[in-house]
Amino acid sequence: MTYGFYWVTSGEALVKFLYSQGVHMWQFLDGLTKYGLLVGIFYTISFYQKFKEKELKETELKLLTKNMELQNLKSQINPHFLFNALNSVNALMAKNPEKARTMNARLAELLRFSLEGYASKFVTLNQELKFIRNYLDIEKIRFGPRLRVKEEINGDVLEESVPSMLLQPIVENAIKHGISKEAKGGELIIRIFKEDGYLNFEIANTGKPARNGKLQDCFEKGIGLKNTHERLKRIYGESFGLELKNSSEEAFTVKIKIPLKQNHD
């Protein structure tokens, strides 16, 4: 009762004091409401700013992690390619020194592009194709007429941006696991075209088709295909990657579809 009486008397005293100062109760309540509103707005803005800062830090961390993962995948592809190229040069040294020297010159060009490509996330398709043609020149020295290459590339695709070192692991896989297994060799077909806002790649090789049940095994056995598949998913999203298929005409085909005209840096 004492406390209740105190608040009542205090409230009455406050009203009397405000009235004596020329302030009516409605003015006091109006001021109090506005003050409460301002305090609420201040804390809402403060909370929102802290939330956005946290969200920004989380986004930056995700981007950093993604870039580290991409570099890790790429660093696994490069040594894999270089090891096989050096093996090819070594195999020719005793059999044909002249061809080995030519192959060394081509390999030097490949190394230069490989180092430049490692520093760049993306290159033009024209640059990527120059790299692939150099690589195939080395393989043609190694395999001779057993390796036949056919290109079906539309002219309007050459300036499109693609992930660097995209095609080499796929081409290497076609030669190593397809064409090289056949005594008479085979044909490597590279198709690139635009369709419905996407840049499409089809890298196919003739030879003995893989059984349908074995297609998925290609991701387990080949580090190049597996890494390229993961790399595409990390760059463009989970719905992108490598699509594998086979048929009687073309033993093995790898398909890639990536969006056109997007900045992925």
Rank of each mutant, 00 (worst) to 15 (best):
213 G>W: 13
50 K>C: 08
112 R>D: 07
208 K>Y: 00
19 Y>Q: 13
197 G>H: 07
265 D>I: 10
160 E>I: 04
83 F>I: 11
3 Y>P: 04
238 E>F: 02
100 A>P: 03
19 Y>I: 08
212 N>E: 14
260 L>F: 09
141 I>R: 02
136 L>G: 04
176 K>G: 04
81 F>A: 13
61 L>Q: 08
234 R>W: 01
236 Y>K: 05
42 F>I: 02
14 L>R: 03
236 Y>P: 07
237 G>I: 01
68 M>V: 12
121 K>R: 05
11 G>Y: 13
2 T>E: 15
231 R>M: 13
238 E>I: 01
264 H>C: 02
18 L>A: 14
99 K>T: 06
228 T>I: 10
21 Q>Y: 09
68 M>E: 12
60 E>V: 12
120 S>C: 06
158 L>M: 13
171 V>Q: 04
44 T>I: 12
237 G>P: 00
49 Q>K: 14
262 Q>W: 01
186 G>Q: 03
164 S>M: 01
77 I>L: 04
16 K>C: 05
67 N>F: 05
249 E>A: 15
110 L>M: 14
226 K>N: 12
144 G>V: 03
175 I>S: 13
214 K>D: 12
88 S>V: 08
97 P>R: 08
225 L>W: 04
262 Q>H: 01
133 R>W: 08
265 D>V: 05
151 E>I: 12
7 W>V: 07
73 L>C: 06
32 L>Q: 10
4 G>C: 10
40 G>A: 14
121 K>T: 06
44 T>H: 10
83 F>N: 15
195 E>T: 00
134 N>I: 07
198 Y>W: 09
244 L>C: 01
162 V>T: 00
8 V>H: 07
3 Y>E: 10
141 I>S: 08
157 V>G: 09
88 S>I: 05
249 E>H: 08
250 E>Y: 01
120 S>F: 10
185 G>W: 03
25 M>R: 09
201 F>A: 08
249 E>Y: 03
181 K>S: 14
261 K>D: 14
232 L>E: 02
248 S>N: 12
177 H>M: 02
225 L>H: 06
224 G>A: 04
81 F>H: 15
242 L>P: 09
188 L>G: 10
253 T>W: 00
163 P>Q: 00
23 V>I: 15
244 L>E: 05
195 E>Q: 11
203 I>D: 13
37 L>P: 01
222 G>D: 15
208 K>T: 11
206 T>E: 13
15 V>S: 06
200 N>M: 06
230 E>G: 07
82 L>K: 07
71 Q>H: 09
256 I>P: 09
171 V>I: 14
149 V>M: 11
62 K>C: 00
132 I>Y: 04
166 L>E: 11
220 E>W: 07
32 L>C: 01
128 E>Q: 06
46 S>E: 10
146 R>N: 14
95 K>F: 05
244 L>W: 09
62 K>P: 01
85 A>T: 07
262 Q>M: 02
30 D>T: 15
199 L>R: 09
220 E>G: 09
233 K>Y: 00
94 A>P: 00
50 K>V: 14
